[in-house]
Computed example of a mutant assay.
Amino acid sequence: MFSFLAACSPLQIVDHLTPKTGYERVQGIPYAEGPRQTYDLYEPSAPRRDAPAIVYFYGGGWKSGDKDKYRFVAQSLTKAGYTVAIPDYRLYPQVTFPDFVQDGAAAVAAVAARLDRPIVLMGHSAGAHIAMMLTLDPRWLSAAGLDVDSTVKATVGLSGPYDFLPLSDDLQPILAPQGDPEASQPITYARGDAPPLLLLHGTADTTVLPKNTKNLAAAIAGLGGDVTVKTYPKVGHAPMIGAFAPALDFLAPSRADVLAWLRDRGL
């Protein structure tokens, strides 16, 4: 056992420790034609009546990530009675902004059509960026045949990059290949009539600085929007989502706070 764990990545260890009961998983449901344009659907064994579905976007700097490594997030949310969809999306260098946002919109549209119920968007890091772009800029879901304000009932962003200009040299070719960096910033599309937002961030995050959450929250609040912010002293980047795993919930109360916030809004 210990030799096996020593050879695994942190996400593989978390997956190994995650229960495989309490849900039914359907893998590789296509939402477009490409090999990375599929999602996994997790149906809880004990669903909450009239609960929305949660579409979760993982992080990875828009250049890495795999839905199979985030079963622990789905298990954690299905345990609370939610149906969960986790899409893959195309990555750099195969694509650049805004292609992965368009993939996110297509995935949400496919999930909404399959389940015929409201959606809560949720994401961590680069996934929070995608979720927030879909929430704040109606063009993407509209192009996929959805009205964002009637489809998306709330959005949860964990450790998200929302306001991070100037772009670093490594991000410039990913997010501003045509030389328009402001177009890639969720704060550019801040609006007071957006669905309710929950923004969570660790104060010790050096990967995505906490000012991203602070600045977006201030912009939304200044426009009269519904935004809630929770910060976690001494918590870094990865523990914010790692704490959703059953064996790692001591890292941060992020899971409990997300579920409580959703319940408070009748979701």
Results as ranks from 00 to 15, higher is better:
S3P: 15
P10S: 15
Q12N: 09
I13N: 02
L17V: 14
Y23N: 05
Y23P: 00
E24N: 14
V26T: 15
R36A: 08
Y39H: 07
L41F: 06
Y42F: 15
P44Q: 05
S45P: 13
A46V: 14
A46M: 13
P47M: 10
P47H: 11
R49C: 09
R49Y: 10
D50F: 12
Y56G: 00
Y56V: 01
F57S: 04
Y58Q: 03
G61Q: 08
K63T: 12
D66W: 02
Y70M: 11
R71A: 13
Q75V: 07
T78F: 12
Y82D: 07
I86T: 04
D88E: 13
Y92W: 14
Y92P: 01
P93L: 03
P93D: 01
Q94V: 13
F97C: 01
P98G: 10
P98F: 08
A106R: 04
V108S: 02
A112L: 06
L115D: 04
L115M: 08
I119N: 05
H124D: 04
H129P: 01
I130D: 00
A131N: 03
M133C: 02
D137K: 10
P138Y: 02
A143Y: 04
V148N: 00
D149C: 11
A154G: 11
V156A: 08
P161Y: 06
P161H: 10
Y162S: 00
F164A: 08
L165Q: 12
P166H: 12
L171Y: 06
L171D: 06
P173H: 09
L175D: 03
P177F: 11
P181W: 00
A183Q: 14
T188D: 04
A190R: 04
A190H: 03
R191K: 14
R191Y: 13
G192A: 07
P196G: 08
L197T: 04
L199H: 04
L200Q: 12
G202I: 02
T203H: 11
D205L: 08
D205W: 05
V208W: 02
P210F: 09
L216R: 01
A217T: 04
I220M: 03
I220R: 03
A221F: 06
G224H: 07
Y232Q: 10
Y232M: 09
Y232H: 12
P233I: 13
H237F: 03
G242M: 05
P246C: 13
D249A: 09
D249P: 03
F250C: 12
L251K: 09
A252R: 01
R255C: 10
A256P: 11
D257P: 09
D257Q: 08
W261F: 09
L262S: 00
